[in-house]
Design a binder for these strands. Sequence first.
DNA 1: GCCAACGTTGGC
DNA 2: GCCAACGTTGGC
Length: 136
Amino acid sequence: MERYWLLKSEPFKYGWDDLEAEGEGTWDGVRNHRAKNNLAAMEVGDQAFFYHSREGLEIVGICEVSEAGITDPTDETGKWAAVKVVPKTKLPRPVTLKEIKVEERLADCELVRQSRLSVAEIKPDEWSLILKMAGV
DNA sequence: GCCAACGTTGGC
DNA sequence: GCCAACGTTGGC
């Protein structure tokens, strides 16, 4: 079953533009167990929102998992997971955290509930709602 | 095995 | 720049 995700990144470290410029990005360096579980559950073809944290605070684009189940290359213990993603589309209109927080149907999503989680799951109905908010 | 202290993340 | 939330570490 296809699942949906949200990947957080600080734009001054690695933003949407960086991903588009590279064509493919490796999502590694995650050192949180819940985020790691999400990474490990990803499959090729899954879609993910790309969210800018600290600065911007908005979902800016959609990317797709191009390689799953990778062991994090930046980790020598081999315990952490990573995936590769390719950029798909930039949202016609970014969806801000503010809008997400105001929308009560999104009050339950991982992004709101656990704000420090760098890889969050998005449920299918939350996914389509956010797409609608983005003007897709 | 509990919990206080500390470090980090991320929204404001 | 501040601080709340959360995770991790280490003393007991």
